[in-house]
C-alpha cells in the first residue's frame, strides 16, 4: 500500500470521526435546547410506575412480582414517545437530505444520532431506575441487575426506535404506526431483561441472561445503523 493511499485513508477515517463528533455535538445542543422533549418521556415512566400500585393495590408481594415488567414496559413506551425528535426536525429543515450527501457513510451518522438519543433518553432512565424500583418495592438485591439490564437494553431501544423513526419520518403522523412496527421487535429484549431480574430474585445467577442481552446489544448496534441509513434514504427520496 502506497504512502499516499495510507495517508488519504487515515485522513478519511479521521474526517469520519471528526464529522461523527460534530454531528453528535450538534444533536446534543439542539436536543438540549428543547429540554421538555428530554424530560417528558422520563416523567412518563415515573407516572406509569405510579399508576400501577394504584391499579393493582400496594401490597409488596404483588408489586415486587410485577415491578420489572412494569418498569420495562414503561421504558419501551417512553422510547416510542421520544422517538419523533430523532429525525423530525432534521427532515423538516432539509438537513437530513444534506446528510445523505456527505462523503461519509450515512450509517456512521445514524450511529451518532442513536448514541445521542441514548445519552438523553436511555442513560437518564438507567439513573431513574432505582427510584422506580423503590416505588414498586423491588427487593434491593435486584436493583443492580435491573439497572444493568436497562444499561444494556436501552441502547437497543434507541437503535430500534431510530429505524422506526427513520422509516416514518416523512409521514408526519407516525405515532401509532411506529408503535405497531416497533413493539413486536422489542419482545426479546423484554423477555431477557425481565428474566434476568427474576432469576436474581429467586437467588440464581443472572449472568446468562445478561450476557445474552449484551450480545443482542452488540448485534443491534452493528446492524441497526445500516437499517437506519437505508430507511433515511427511502424517506428523503
Amino acid at each position: 500500500m502506497s504512502l499516499v493511499e495510507t495517508n488519504s485513508r487515515c485522513s478519511n477515517q479521521a474526517s469520519t470521526f471528526a464529522l461523527l463528533r460534530v454531528i453528535m455535538r450538534r444533536d446534543l445542543a439542539v436536543t438540549l435546547r428543547r429540554r421538555s422533549d428530554v424530560i417528558n418521556p422520563l416523567l412518563f415512566v415515573v407516572i406509569v410506575v405510579t399508576l400501577f400500585p394504584l391499579a393493582v393495590g400496594p401490597g409488596p408481594d404483588i408489586l415486587a412480582r410485577i415491578a420489572t415488567g412494569v418498569i420495562w414496559v414503561a421504558a419501551l413506551l417512553s422510547a416510542l414517545l421520544g422517538s419523533e425528535r430523532l429525525f423530525r426536525d432534521d427532515y423538516l429543515d432539509g438537513s437530513l437530505e444534506q446528510m445523505t450527501l456527505l462523503p461519509v457513510p450515512l450509517a456512521v451518522l445514524a450511529l451518532g444520532k442513536i448514541l445521542v438519543h441514548w445519552l438523553l433518553s436511555g442513560l437518564p432512565l438507567v439513573i431513574l431506575a432505582p427510584l422506580c424500583a423503590l416505588l414498586l418495592k423491588l427487593p434491593f438485591e435486584a436493583w443492580g441487575v435491573l439497572m444493568l439490564t436497562l444499561l444494556l437494553g436501552t441502547p437497543m431501544l434507541s437503535a430500534m426506535t431510530a429505524i422506526g423513526a427513520a422509516l416514518t419520518v416523512s409521514l408526519g403522523r407516525g405515532g401509532a404506526l411506529l408503535s405497531l412496527l416497533l413493539l413486536p421487535l422489542f419482545i426479546p429484549l423484554l423477555i431477557f431483561a425481565a428474566a434476568a431480574v427474576e432469576s436474581t430474585l429467586v437467588g440464581t445467577s443472572a449472568l446468562g441472561q445478561v450476557l445474552l442481552l449484551a450480545g443482542l446489544m452488540v448485534l443491534t448496534l452493528t446492524l441497526a445503523p445500516l437499517a437506519v441509513a437505508a430507511a433515511i434514504r427511502v424517506s428523503v427520496n
Partner: peptide
C-alpha cells in the same frame, strides 16, 4: 403483528414507491 406492521407501513404512504421501499426495509429488519 409483524405482518400487520409491514402491511400498515406499505399502505401508509401516499407515494406507493416510498411505501414499498419502507416496507422492504422493515421486512428485512
Amino acid at each position: 403483528f409483524l405482518y400487520i406492521g409491514v402491511l400498515a407501513l406499505y399502505y401508509a404512504f401516499t407515494d406507493a414507491r416510498t411505501g414499498a421501499k419502507a416496507a422492504s426495509v422493515l421486512a428485512l429488519v
